[in-house]
Amino acid sequence: MKILVAVKRVVDFNVKIRVNADHTAVDLANVKMSMNPFDEIGVEEALRLKEAGIATEVVAVSMGPANAAETIRTALAMGADRGILVETTTELQPLAVAKLMAKLVDKEKPDLVILGKQAIDDDCNQTGQVLAGLLGWAQGTFASKLEFAADKKTLTVTREVDGGLETLALAMPAIITTDLRLNEPRYASLPNIMKAKSKPLDKQTPESLGVDVTPRLITIRIDEPPPRAAGVKVADVAELVHKLRDEAKVI
């Protein structure tokens, strides 16, 4: 079984972002970038399936400017076998990403594609579902547990839904998007980071894949949200109860 796993280069989750002066974008200059946390969970799950003898090859895919290759190297250092970068400076929206992924699926013929449920920059939560729709494959979104049937023809997925958990049986091939509790991703060891440098990394472009990636949504402007007014410190529980009851009137 071959697994494609999608990895996106995003602003690190600890960074407080800033909107640029002309309100056209978020300022990305000199900002720490990392692999999207949900994609780390995706890579980890693919590696565990390989270690369990279910998968045979794990291919990490990223898209965007040339430095997205760094994120692929991170996946390779974690243990992925090889990488594919679809290089472009055009802003890629989820529909375009899914179309590019669908082309790679045609070429690579994986049995499973794992994506993070959401990227923490655009917060769209779409790409996996769109890819499943384009390919006509089953989808298991917000997955917290995967179990393969002995013949590997069905995949039982436990999903995180609003009120608890839901279980689906998916026909293979399938699309999985990861939720928080699927696993805890490993750190890459130094020897593995060195080894990752010599793993193969193939390059493609939207043109080479024949996909029109022109953005469908035009960003008119970006604003910072209005700040909250500063609050007060209370001395003790009695003062807190008094404030909530008599000032804020919420209890």
Partner: peptide, 24 residues
């Protein structure tokens, strides 16, 4: 609504319609 239900179904429909969904 962007609940687990809405998030799961609408992007898949967007693929069939060739439309870029607008989330949240």
């Amino acid at each position: 609504t962007a609940t687990a239900f809405g998030k799961n179904i609408l992007p898949r429909a967007s693929a069939l319609l060739d439309v870029q969904q607008i989330s949240e």
